[in-house]
Nucleic acid binder design. Structure first.
Lengths: 348, 348
DNA sequence: GCCCTGCAGGAATGCGCATTCCCCCACCCG
DNA sequence: CGGGTGGGGGAATGCGCATTCCTGCAGGGC
């Protein structure tokens, strides 16, 4: 039980230790290390820094947070980091956070949407400075209300909240112009000569998926093309969902010359399905996606899609929560850009 | 300045508020909410819970951490979440953390390796319970020593540390059998009839890249095939690195019938380069990668690779830091599995 | 009927730090 | 040379909570 074992037990160096070593008071040590409004005489300042250095002092962030009444924590809630869409957004957010000296804690719902609630609550417990909820998929009215309540609670406690890609809850939001992007895409595809489309629409309860479907329909309509309900297939928002939906479409027998999957990952699944069914690409079927996932830029034929500045979405949300809150929820719109590639050749 | 504005100012409900509302002491409220060794009379217990509920009480995690002397934070340090390799590992770690009620904070070095140091130091400041460093690329001897020192410091303070994929610093580590996997891959490719290989070796200062190159050479040697130094091209460990290396190889003029890129992302870049140069795949050149990145499973021709259980790497590291520390650093070995696909057809 | 034991509630303490308040001292002005 | 002023050091306070210690009370054994 001597001093030695106490140190081994994990007792870390405190500010008081530093102060003693420097021969100053705790207050002075604190001021020297943090640079408060009060100034410290240069020689003492120096001594404190030297003492801290030699003792390997590391300020206890918890204690600082408590004394200051705020933290540098920002929570990031998303459905799955392994999904390239989300991981890109996360990367953007993290990059932006670093510039602001913020610490990012990440939580994934992995499809269980009620966890969004738990995480926001947990982050309130952490007294996180802000929370960013990416691509909330909450649809259930009750759940949505509870999430909205939790968000209010979080804000009541002085925290900032931003969403990426939702519009149900009144809060700062980075809105992706899914509808506009899909519309532009449809118009471009019509410009290539297509007159008959199929849509792999993903989950019908996802706002993002719905918006893209709607926008695509609008764009087609604008070019005088109607999309038959029979040519719209719902399913998972994933690669396998795209695969399955494409198979179903083929089984039904479609006359479409071009299929639009509401995201790139699904489009790739659809391409796999087409190949498995012996359809030649792109001659046998044109395929388009959405997002322009970087990792998928080398699939063949190269995928026509709508490019989204994913990292900017995350960075933009971070920027919003760093700013002072506005009276009105802020909306930051992000546009996509149609990128035509080989998967949708000019129709002969 | 009435009560109302005080609440707006962000003052949150404290345990004391709950205790008062329930008509009990702070100690009792604490015991009721946390279930300590001491028990609370059922009716009081009930009252406290009800009060906490109605006040929307959320315990201040910082204060709890300070009072308890420990946190539930685990830090995850990696180079880039947007990279599918790392994001998969992160997903595994996060999933495992959730089961243990741990909060994951993530930091990315984005290629600046010295940040690993800063982050480990910062996590010590957070009094994180553990830190997991994934794929440390630190090579510089000085930096490495400082990282090792920082790690010791962290452990001194009572924290747990684990690495994924390194072997320079004595600490719990999840080791990927890069060498063995690459060796097995080379043997399999030789089995397909190849006798002349090229290697896109990535960054020469990355242990992972080097091990894979070495292993591949060993495997080939075992089948009696020597790989010429001229057929090994170094470059970035990224898609663009793979592309550039492949171009360089083609410009040099290689006689290889099969090119091994030390990771899938590079392999995809190489495939793009080959296509751009008019080489037909897989007939004109066989291509193999490493990792079996999920997002890339649908490239054409389907990529032969070594499948790594990426999520398990993250989860395994998390499991290690949750366990009690051993006297000796633990090593957890993870094997890869050769997956032959169409990108490496049987040679005629 | 009394004392001892065990249980449970409450007051008090301390975690590590920022910050406020107090006070001393040096310097400047008159 | 005295009083005023300001800069800066140090003691004390409090952040929100877990936990220890103290105390009161009920129940059981003699």
């Amino acid at each position: 039980m001597g001093e030695r074992s106490e140190r081994i037990a994990g007792a870390s160096v405190t500010l008081l230790d530093v102060a003693k070593a420097a021969g100053v008071s705790l207050a002075t040590a604190s001021r020297a290390l943090n640079g408060s409004t009060r100034r410290v005489r240069p020689d003492l300042h120096e001594r404190v820094l030297a003492a801290a250095e030699s003792l390997h002092y590391s300020a206890n962030a918890q204690a600082q947070a408590m004394a200051r009444g705020r933290t540098n924590i920002v929570g990031l809630v998303l459905s799955d980091v392994a999904d390239p869409y989300f991981s890109s957004i996360a990367a953007g957010a993290i990059r932006a956070a670093e510039e602001e000296q913020l610490v990012v804690t990440m939580a994934c719902t992995f499809g269980r949407e009620e966890r969004e609630l738990e995480y926001v609550a947990a982050l309130r417990g952490q007294r996180a400075r802000a929370v960013i909820v990416v691509g909330s998929r909450v649809q259930d009215r009750g759940l949505l209300d509870r999430l909205a309540a939790e968000v209010r609670e979080f804000e009541q406690a002085g925290g900032r909240v931003a969403f990426v890609s939702q519009r149900k809850i009144p809060a700062d939001t980075v809105v992706v112009e899914n509808r506009g992007g899909a519309k532009a895409l449809a118009e471009a595809l019509c410009g290539l000569g297509h007159r008959r489309f199929a849509v792999l629409a993903g989950r019908s309860d996802l706002l993002t998926a719905r918006d893209r479907t709607t926008g695509f329909r609008e764009g087609a309509a604008r070019a005088g093309v109607r999309i038959d309900a029979a040519d719209v297939v719902y399913g998972g928002f994933t690669r396998d969902g795209g695969y399955a939906a494409m198979i179903e479409l083929l089984d039904r027998g479609t006359e479409a010359t071009c299929v639009f999957a509401v995201n790139d990952v699904m489009a790739v699944g659809a391409m796999a399905a087409l190949r498995d069914r012996g359809v030649e690409l792109p001659s046998g079927m044109a395929v388009a996606g959405f997002d322009d996932i970087a990792t998928l830029r080398d699939v063949t034929p190269a995928l026509t899609t709508v490019r989204l500045p994913l990292e900017e979405l995350g960075a933009g949300a971070m920027a919003m929560v760093v700013q002072e809150p506005a009276e009105q929820p802020r909306i930051r719109r992000v546009r996509g850009e149609v990128v035509l590639r080989e998967s949708t050749p000019l129709l002969a």
